[in-house]
Design a protein around this nucleic acid. Structure first.
Lengths: 292, 292
DNA sequence: ACTCATCTATCTGAAATTTAGATGGCAACT
DNA sequence: AGTTGCCATCTAAATTTCAGATAGATGAGT
């Protein structure tokens, strides 16, 4: 059988250390063993991986290209061993998390980066259900965990925990009539408001509605594009505004009223009756530990 | 060294054939060799891959999961050998193709599906440069091949070949004033036209402009969303209209004039002075062979 | 120019691994 | 009950891998 994992490992370590001798030391093998393995690999593949022109071998173009492939294979082999290890530890094999767009992306990215380090062999699916209710996904079992903004009433089957509050800003285009004034409630009512569309009706759809004339758009990104064009104004969480490519073309005028409850609560939800594995448990605790 | 490719192969073939004996026959090895390899693999991984309760072994849950990983590793090993083979054949390692959105996606998908079969080890990068000139990408070497609509003058360094003609339709919202009339030239001028925005100015930016009042939008998809809202009308290629989720809400009124050159030519472009490898050659011939 | 250190390739013999073949025990089928 | 096909175990042989010794080449330092 040609091309063994040992050969690939000798090849990769030699490339990384810069010499067969150093690779042999790293692998705790005789230098000749490494030399022979690499020579055999080159014979099996039918090309040179290293040029031996000088004292130190250097990778050929083919060697550089195949190094990437070899690394992938060795990584996958480690991954397979890791998957086997996770069976021993009874860690979930797969986790589905539904997250509303309102959760700050940076904090989320940090959570999942750490999750990846802790549970490298758990298959993760992240849903961003713009057009679906996060709590319903968790209720029906389509998601294991949900992160969403507060609804008036959650089904009693769901457990929840408040993670924090996300500030919402009123935003419009720089040429919009409201761009350079201190905006009051009547001002907001007089101009078209652009709201996030949800495909299922519910109280959350009307939650931030102020104006009688509204547009519904299915993406915050497109909302900001439209707002930039002066078509209307919108309430958008500040992290979404920051992340938008058109942020520089937007105005965030000052509001005259202070009693409007602009920050909205962000909740973590899960199904009380479904058992929680170590990965889901870790994730819940990690979300809860981060103040947003 | 634990977990060898031979072990993984014995495992995968045994899973596929349903028995160690059949795997041994497939692999032209003694049945005991296969049995031993699988047992050694299970010992290395620390878990059972097969249940031996009956006469035929059956995969355990761990075995089913690890079978997927093992297959990936064996596939990657074959891929590595394939990459080595492509070096022998002097096939390009990488190809960048810039394609204007006007090229019908279905035909393109078929071309690249076939390309993937012919050149499985060529790294392909597809650019859809909405905001950049395809011919300039090819001229500057950022793309090896370009597919674009005809410009008035191409730089002399570029070779080109006409692939065909794409019909362009005038489209508006169903509530737009032009929706239910036979539209003439003056009608078009009187209403806002929405055009594809390009970040660099050039003659192609104004190519389809008819109306004095225009909007520029960076995406055909968003153009159609805006057209649907009755904000204006647009010229859009018919395959883009068909692919849009809002196609049902659009009107395509009949035009009174017949001499307008609505179909636009689609060109394949390449740099005359840059050598063309077998993968690029194949791709050019394949694009040329498809009538659109 | 000389010396020294480090490198790779080759060779030999030993160790480790893999394999084929024989065999026993078990399950499923007829 | 008899037959067939399977897996696990054992033994001996074949193959592969390895360590260690060695020769020759290269590069750095003096």
């Amino acid at each position: 059988m040609s091309v063994s994992l040992d050969q690939l490992q000798a090849f990769v370590v030699a490339a990384e250390t810069g010499s067969f001798s150093a690779a042999a030391r790293r692998l705790r093998k005789a230098q000749s063993a490494v030399s022979t393995q690499i020579s055999n690999l080159e014979e099996d593949l039918g090309l040179a991986l290293f040029s031996r022109a000088g004292r130190s071998p250097s990778l050929t173009p083919a060697g550089e290209r195949l190094l990437l492939e070899a690394r992938v294979i060795l990584d996958r082999r480690e991954h397979l061993i890791g998957v086997a290890r996770s069976f021993e530890a009874h860690v979930e094999q797969r986790l589905v998390v539904a997250i509303d767009e309102i959760y700050p992306e940076q904090a989320m990215a940090e959570v999942f980066a750490e999750f990846a380090r802790h549970f490298p062999h758990v298959e993760l699916e992240l849903l961003f259900p713009m057009m679906e209710d996060v709590s319903r996904l968790v209720l029906t079992g389509q998601a294991d965990i949900g992160v969403m903004w507060r609804q008036e009433i959650l089904p009693t089957e769901l457990g929840f925990q408040t993670l924090g509050w996300v500030p919402i800003k009123m935003v419009c285009g720089k040429q919009h009539p409201l761009a350079n004034v201190r905006v009051d409630w009547e001002d907001l009512k007089r101009h078209r408001q652009i709201l996030v569309a949800a495909r299922n009706d519910g109280p959350e759809k009307q939650r931030l509605r102020v104006a009688p004339e509204v547009w519904w758009v299915e993406s915050h990104w497109v909302i900001l594009q439209l707002v930039r064009q002066g078509i209307g104004w919108a309430f958008v969480s500040s992290h979404v505004i920051k992340a938008s490519p058109v942020a520089a073309d937007l105005a965030i005028p000052e509001l005259q009223f202070d009693d409007f409850d602009l920050p909205v609560a962000v909740e973590l939800v899960w199904h009380k009756q479904r058992p929680c594995g170590p990965a889901a448990k870790w994730l819940r605790e990690r979300f809860a530990a981060i103040r947003i």
